[in-house]
């Protein structure tokens, strides 16, 4: 239903030092009727990819097809098929939610009666009755997101694209949005959503792609991706809060151990260590090794592979660490200026 082929996009002029390669040959195929997750840390290129898909941004290279329509050749044709719920989109504070929906309905050329009936339907579905006639300026983040979702659904799009739809939302709004997305998929809409919440993608998505620094580094169903990892996951804590130096020392100790496949330091969790080992025997051996080196064990937990492990395996760091690394680095104001028409 959606095919992105070899998309590249660079922000800023090529020669300048502040140029950013936001997408570096991204290819994705989203099957029809699938709820597809695009997982990646802040700065991975999710928004850029979705904006290109929704014809708001031209790629430097690559192809975009939506239900057979070439979005670069026929952007209007693609726009008719797509509903887009942007990560952060302006709302007209002076209009009421209902008036905004009516405006969007007119921009999609819905006949007046059908438009009004559809608006009623969506108000009910997204539980917006209580506040839809208040001015948008008074809405909370959750209300705005629900309204955004409604505007994306007005014209009954065959493909719904959402950019981080639940970031910073209250539990109730998040639950409402999750429920509606699942219903949509069940009734035949293709849904593509980006997220940097592992749990969200794990819980919702039929398939997912992991995006990292403008490249797709893994793709498949959550079960396949986790299954392909193999081995047992172990989280080891020497003490409740360790430090980098000690963590590095323990890592080299563990890496020397036979049957230990991978050791990664998880900075975000008090320098605990995430490792992948081949079977329980290895864990026993580890305990001995640590005792021999006079190292305590505060906690040692075994778990099944999660999407976090998939990410870890592919990038060598946890998603949380990747988030922390970019926190505060992006200049939102400059990016908004750059994206201004």
């Amino acid at each position: 239903m959606i095919e992105l082929h070899n998309l590249s996009k660079r922000y800023g002029s090529g020669g300048r030092s502040d140029a950013v390669l936001a997408l570096d040959g991204v290819s994705l195929t989203v099957p029809s009727g699938c709820l597809y997750g695009l997982l990646g840390p802040n700065g991975a290129g999710k928004t850029t990819a979705l904006r290109i898909l929704c014809t708001l941004l031209a790629p430097d290279a690559g192809q975009v097809r939506v239900a057979g329509v070439d979005a670069l050749d026929d952007p209007r044709g693609a726009r008719r098929l797509l509903g887009y719920v942007a990560q952060e989109v302006a709302i007209d504070k002076i209009l009421s939610g209902r008036e905004l929906l009516a405006l969007q309905g007119d921009l999609h050329h819905l006949p007046r009666q059908e438009r009004n009936a559809r608006i009623e339907e969506l108000i009910g579905l997204l539980e917006m009755e209580a506040w839809i006639d208040r001015r948008c300026g008074t809405y909370s983040g959750g209300m705005r997101r629900r309204l955004d979702l409604a505007t994306g659904l007005l014209h009954r799009p065959r493909v719904l694209v959402l950019d981080e739809p639940t970031v910073g939302l209250d539990i109730e709004s998040r639950a409402t949005i999750w429920r509606v997305l699942q219903q949509l998929r069940d009734q035949g809409t293709t849904v593509l959503l980006s997220s940097h919440y592992l749990e969200e993608v794990d819980a919702l998505a039929d398939r997912l792609a992991i995006l990292e620094a403008g490249r797709v580094i893994a793709e498949g169903t959550p079960a396949d991706l986790k299954g392909a990892l193999g081995g047992d996951r172990v989280t080891l804590r020497i003490r409740e809060f360790s430090d980098e130096q000690e963590a590095v020392r323990v890592r080299s100790l563990l890496q020397a151990c036979q049957g230990v496949r991978q050791v990664v330091i998880n900075r975000a969790q008090g320098y605990s260590l995430n490792l992948v080992v081949d079977g329980d025997a290895v864990i026993e051996r580890l305990r001995h090794q640590l005792a021999d080196a006079d190292l305590p064990v505060f906690a040692l937990a075994q778990s099944r592979a999660s999407l976090d492990d998939v990410y870890l395996q592919a990038t060598g760091r946890t998603l949380q660490d990747a988030e922390l690394a970019v926190a505060g680095q992006r200049d939102a104001k400059a990016e908004r200026k750059q994206a201004m028409r």
């Binding site: 014809t55 708001l56 209007r76 726009r79 942007a86 709302i91 969007q104 999609h108 028409r341």
Partner: peptide
């Protein structure tokens, strides 16, 4: 204002004739 605050982007995803 629509350019600056991004409302224009909302208008531009719609399939305006």
């Amino acid at each position: 204002f629509d350019r600056e605050f991004g409302f224009l982007n909302r208008l531009l995803v719609a399939p305006l004739r």
